[in-house]
Design a protein around this nucleic acid. Structure first.
Lengths: 153, 153
DNA sequence: CTAACTGCAAACCTTTTGCATTGAC
DNA sequence: GTCAATGCAAAAGGTTTGCAGTTAG
């Protein structure tokens, strides 16, 4: 299991391939999204970007995130509102997102994708629906918090 | 498979059980949420409510939806942004939500929950995570649109 | 060169809040 | 009667847009 660190090489390349111009601002934003250790909302992206380039503007962040979203290079998540109303952005890792959100410590983990094929096959067979992008979000209690809870009940 | 019509008796009763006062406005809102044929966003809820009671105010709709959300009686969904940025509300059917969103016709279906136990058991065994609320959203092509596509390729 | 992109500021839209009043229990 | 809930209006918050200047390709 990994903790939200996708070694997702080549967002910039994929942006270029889709015809986007690789401006300085976009290079910063792409790098931020690629190396993020946690899910970022628009404001966090803006703050981190501003730390690297004082002149970057909120509007640019919004415009870029929207563009990436429309191209399907980035996805917007609410993580079941466990952390309030914020919306988070992440590079689209594949066609599958699985997020385990701990309601106790707010940590988000992304488990391995072992059951993806089962899930997809079942939906295709039983419902005639052909899944293209799948999002699975579970809110619950993570292993660490379960252990803590067991120690101090 | 059903089409987003949950015979979900008793939202009002559950509200009362949680200590909420059953005002005229809340009765209208509860009925709307219970009988909705499709997922409603806040503005739609407001418009439908206004049709039944001219004096009802947006603030009341927001306050009520928030209250229901915090109590876990209602959930907020983005349905993978297939229909833009709108957020939808639905009565929490159980701890499990499965939505199949067709990217072609925008229809949302909710399949039967046969694989729920598998999914939960696997996450619990493989990741030590205890799921409490599970949301599965799939964007793809529904059976009807696949058939249409097959006829006119 | 030129179309795409940016910064800026204003506009926009959705949601929240303070306050006086109303109404459920 | 009391406290929660409402309507109203104003504020807040987050996001988008028009425009003029800049820059990647």
């Amino acid at each position: 299991m990994r903790h939200c660190t996708l070694p997702n090489e080549g967002l910039l390349e994929r942006m270029k391939a889709r015809g986007l111009r690789l401006t300085g601002q976009r290079k910063i934003l792409a790098e931020l999204l690629e190396t993020a250790e946690e899910h970022l909302d628009a404001e966090s992206v803006y703050q981190l970007a501003k730390a690297k380039d004082e002149t970057i503007h909120r509007a640019t962040v919004y415009r870029t995130l929207n563009k990436l979203k429309k191209l399907g290079l980035v996805d917007e998540l609410d993580l079941m509102h466990v952390s309030g109303e914020r919306h988070f952005y992440e590079i689209r890792p594949s066609t599958l997102h699985i997020h385990l959100v701990c309601t106790t410590c707010k940590r988000v983990d992304e488990p391995d994708e072992a059951f993806w094929d089962d899930l997809k096959r079942r939906v295709e067979n039983e419902n005639g629906f052909r899944p293209e992008v799948v999002r699975v979000e579970m809110a619950g209690v993570c292993a660490a918090c379960l252990r803590k809870r067991a120690r101090r009940p």
